[in-house]
Nucleic acid binder design. Sequence first.
DNA 1: TTACATGCTGTTATATTATAACAATTCTAA
DNA 2: TTAGAATTGTTATAATATAACAGCATGTAA
Lengths: 133, 133
Amino acid sequence: MTRMHKENSLSKNQQIIFDLIDKSPEPLKAYTILYNVQKKGINAPPQVYRALDKLVEVGKIHKIESKNAFVACKNSDCEISKATAFSICESCEVVDEISDIKLSKYLSSFNHKKGMKFKRFNLEFFGLCKKCK
Amino acid sequence: MTRMHKENSLSKNQQIIFDLIDKSPEPLKAYTILYNVQKKGINAPPQVYRALDKLVEVGKIHKIESKNAFVACKNSDCEISKATAFSICESCEVVDEISDIKLSKYLSSFNHKKGMKFKRFNLEFFGLCKKCK
DNA sequence: TTACATGCTGTTATATTATAACAATTCTAA
DNA sequence: TTAGAATTGTTATAATATAACAGCATGTAA
């Protein structure tokens, strides 16, 4: 049998759901994912949400909070999702992960006056993409 | 000015809901708001969500996307919610609006390589606050 | 070997968050 | 005063997410 617990390997459901998200050109919502994997034997919301939680935890996908949707990580720099940034077109809804070292460094070293030490951040930019403006 | 609307005043429901959020030390969720304003005659979710939508639109409150909760704007600089940043304690869940001109300017002038022109952004930092660390 | 801890799976039911659709009323500008 | 816009009230339902329970597979320790 396959080894389930190696650090780099995904379980069956995790792999199915990651593959779907990874090949999607747009962020996918949990129930859209569910409908698309029911033919593979994933029948119920908790199965989807558990896989999503794990994939987020290990940094394979990110959640776009303003859309309740998930995208595959395209960025080797955002180790375990500590520093994520996205651009979101308000018209066509296209989402791109921003990978900008300077931005990432700037924000990672940002310190709040009130003495809070940040462990991670999520940044979402909104506007009109090239095609839509 | 062609139109002298009631640009600065809130309707009854909007005012009730804004007051509740404004005096809360923590972000409030829509249904928490609903339970707390039922004694004032606001009975159903759409009434709450409509007021929230409007308050967000005019910049009196912000939505904390990662928590599906709302806070009053404490910051005269984020005109109509075009540039919002928050710090969120992962332990006690305290949320602070960050008002940092340099940060705001830096992000407002950030330009995506792919030619997208940004109209607004929302940034959420996570960590442990002074008390919790 | 047995026992146990851990992680993944499957399932039913339910909780939480948000909107659709429609009618009535109030406010505002001309 | 009157038309259009904004707001309100209401019922129903859609969309998003989790609780709670049980079973199975694998790795590790005794």
